[in-house]
Nucleic acid binder design. Structure first.
Length: 274
DNA sequence: GTCCATGTTCTTTA
DNA sequence: CTAAAGAACATGGA
């Protein structure tokens, strides 16, 4: 899926083009993408104007003119795209919002949510905050807050970085890339990281995410931005997906292990077990 | 046919 | 009790 850089790319892409638009019509092709189950999304959205679109963690949070909110989660294979009316509707397109701009012009654009694996979905918030169950944003995280979040657990640092209640927005690609940049072994117990390691990790998280956002994210297979364009960051990966290949820094072979059921790639020389 | 995949949540185990 | 590991979800590509 889309992790923080990919979600940020989509949000940056669609925000200026949908804020101020009115929802003319809602086409909901399957209802099992909705949470809570049973809500009448078309009734809740039709006729409303979108006043804001923002990212929180990996959630795309949409605010309406009546202060109600919902968010879209892209799961592993989700895509949120802008399309012109009449363009091909791909298989697994579950929701289409037909938007009209504020000038009273007819249907100019469609916001389409497509998700083959259906690990994502549409989550209605009403007037609640989108923060439920989420830790701090990595891009503004302070070292002291990171230290606090890691001090109470012996889990491997890689597992902690994937836990959205600890830090919200990292996923399997960027957790590995951040640990490489910080020079930290993924199996290091979270609570034995030194203040120096925490500082380096905090800086590595920000640098990795900023660079990935600048490259419009990583595309492995499914991810595309709102204009169906893939991200360019994959070619810049130092470890993720590079098992057996030479480390970009020291030429040692990149190692792959399975941790919490996920591929974990690291350089055994640059990220020594401490 | 097999294995693997950018995520989250529920269940089982220790 | 808690923490951590494992399974499940659904689809498709290699």
């Amino acid at each position: 899926m889309p992790e923080l850089p990919e979600v940020q790319t989509v949000v940056s892409n669609i925000t200026p083009r949908v804020v101020g638009s009115r929802v003319r019509k809602v086409q909901l092709n399957r209802t099992d993408i909705l949470t809570p189950a049973g809500i009448n999304l078309p009734a809740l959205l039709t006729g409303r104007t979108i006043t804001n679109v923002a990212r929180r963690a990996k959630r795309i949070v949409v605010t309406l003119d009546n202060a109600n909110r919902f968010y879209i989660h892209l799961g592993m294979s989700g895509q949120l795209t802008l399309a012109t009316k009449g363009s091909e509707i791909k298989k697994h397109t579950h929701l289409i919002l037909h938007l009209a701009n504020g000038n009273g012009l007819r249907d100019t654009i469609e916001l389409r949510f497509r998700d083959p694996r259906r690990f994502g979905g549409v989550f209605w918030l009403g007037r609640d905050s989108a923060d439920t169950g989420l830790g701090p944003e990595p891009l503004t995280l302070r070292p002291a807050a990171l230290a606090r979040a890691l001090a109470h657990t012996r889990r491997p640092i890689k597992s902690a970085l994937l836990d959205q209640t600890v830090i919200a927005g990292l996923g399997n690609i960027y957790a590995d890339e951040c640990l490489f940049l910080a020079g930290v072994h993924p199996l290091t117990p979270s609570n034995v990281l030194t203040p120096g390691q925490i500082g380096r990790l905090n800086r590595a998280i920000k640098q990795t995410l900023r660079r990935a956002i600048a490259a419009r994210g990583s595309t492995l297979r499914d991810y595309v931005d709102a204009d169906n364009k893939p991200g360019k960051y994959r070619s810049k990966h130092n470890v993720y997906g590079r098992e057996g290949k030479p480390c970009t820094k020291c030429k040692s072979a990149i190692t792959r292990i399975v941790l919490t059921g996920r591929s974990t790639c690291f350089c055994p020389h640059c990220q020594p077990q401490s």
